[in-house]
């Protein structure tokens, strides 16, 4: 049945592809298309954010300034660091450094966990201050730059609804990513990936970088509204 049995290839080549390059190109294109769906998936939330930020800019500013900018910036740095370790792990796979590869993948997981830990601290803080949308939500304050103009608590709640929705969806993606990388680490440790075949690492890496890019936008949009006032 397999007419190309004579062609030399690894066990990872599936029957319906004619060669490893075709399989790799298919996997890569598939991953990129999946990331496009992810862009649009987050896009719906970005659209909601944009609309309400346009309507309630002052209230959004006041709510945004209750977020801890140091933790936000720290987490940004952590994620960028993890993107570096992911990029380096591709290099390690391409050059066949198995131990380095495992180490870099572990470092990625570790940085991902640090990010989630900091996020948990921030969520806990919001919970303490009754900034979690719902029945016990409470927000008082003035619109930045407009002394005496009180913040509409509904509009502040809208900010926090979007904050939790967007960062929550992002965190969910991080958790999935950490799961993926745990599996990759195990496979890499067994020596499954070679300089000829490392497509899963490449594709998981694309996913991780995408999640990083989402955060690159979330950070200024959520933490940096009207900070100068």
């Amino acid at each position: 049945m397999d007419s190309h049995a004579a062609v030399e290839h690894g066990p990872e080549l599936l029957h319906h592809f004619s060669d490893a390059e075709q399989q790799r190109n298919a996997a890569s294109l598939g991953m990129w298309l999946f990331l496009v769906t992810e862009i649009m998936f987050f896009g719906g939330m970005f659209c909601a954010y944009l609309v309400y930020r346009y309507w309630y800019f002052g209230d959004f500013g006041a709510a945004s300034q209750t977020l801890d900018i140091r933790l936000g910036a720290f987490n940004t740095a952590v994620l960028i660091g993890s993107s570096l370790t992911v990029a380096m792990s591709i290099w390690a796979a391409q050059t066949g450094r198995r131990k380095v590869l495992v180490g870099l993948l572990l470092a990625t997981i570790l940085l991902g966990l640090v990010f989630l830990g900091v996020k948990a601290v921030e969520y806990h803080d919001k919970f303490e201050h009754h900034h979690v949308p719902g029945a016990s939500f409470h927000f008082e304050g003035e619109v930045p730059g407009h002394p005496g103009l009180p913040v509409n608590p509904y509009h502040a709640q809208m900010f926090f609804s979007l904050y939790f929705a967007m960062t929550g969806l992002h965190a969910l993606h991080m958790i999935i990513g950490i799961g993926l990388f745990s599996y990759l680490t195990y496979k890499a440790w067994t020596g499954y990936y070679t300089p000829k075949y490392y497509t899963p690492i490449e594709n998981a890496g694309l996913y991780w970088h995408f999640v990083d890019i989402v955060w690159i936008y979330l950070f200024p949009l959520l933490y940096l509204i009207d900070r100068h006032r």
Partner: peptide, 16 residues
């Protein structure tokens, strides 16, 4: 803010 974010995103897409 968005300009810098976009620059960062482009760099990640192109190089990483």
């Amino acid at each position: 803010a968005l300009g810098i974010a976009t620059l960062k995103a482009v760099v990640v897409v192109l190089y990483f």
